[in-house]
């Protein structure tokens, strides 16, 4: 079983990102689970979501305390997100405009803000970064690009070039900063 935790700010689309990843697992022939943590929601407050993928049935229903991957939706949250707990061999995927690395952990970086802006994807709170982040995480987890695209099309039939383009660009530009 593979466990991920998404750390973001309220309004960044972490719930949708978690749902997309769980749906991609199913699309890829595995079991998937998205378990967002719902607090007393406020835009801008730190939020988190658990995602699990497994070849066999998933029984876990806790938040991921020591995940294999931490997905950081905003660079500002990196330290807090990693300190919350990560597997000894866990990797970190960070949305940042420049190369960043976390001590002792394999680190991947993608500029989801720029990709979303360029694709014209905006929410009320700024660039709609969960679509490019979904592409980046799929790449890091070796989920095939066609599975990623099919997952987006299943969720938003006819969603068109902007979503697929942004996810595809992130899929192909996410970079491993530390091995």
């Amino acid at each position: 079983m593979l466990e991920l935790r998404i750390n973001g700010f309220g309004g960044q689309g972490s719930v949708t990102l978690a749902h997309l990843l769980a749906q991609a697992a199913l699309e890829n022939g595995n079991q998937g689970q998205a378990l967002p943590f719902f607090g007393v929601e406020r835009r801008g407050a730190p939020v988190r979501a658990a995602v699990r993928m497994s070849a066999t049935s998933i029984h876990a229903h806790s938040q991921c305390e020591l995940p294999d991957y931490v997905v950081v939706m905003s660079e500002k949250l990196t330290k807090e997100a990693v300190n919350e707990g990560i597997n000894e061999f866990g990797a970190v995927i960070i949305n940042a405009p420049h190369a960043v690395a976390v001590e002792k952990h394999p680190t991947w970086q993608v500029d989801a803000d720029a990709i979303a802006r360029e694709a014209g994807l905006f929410s009320a709170d700024g660039p709609f970064i969960n679509i490019p982040l979904f592409g980046a995480v799929c790449r890091v987890l070796n989920i095939p690009q066609n599975i990623m695209e099919q997952t987006i099309l299943n969720k938003w039939p006819g969603s068109g070039e902007r979503n697929l383009g942004a996810a595809g660009k992130a899929y192909n530009t996410v970079t491993q900063i530390r091995g």
Partner: peptide, 12 residues
């Protein structure tokens, strides 16, 4: 069944 842990958990 449990609130959030089941009610808001997306599963097959």
């Amino acid at each position: 069944f449990d609130g959030f842990a089941i009610s808001h958990c997306l599963m097959p």
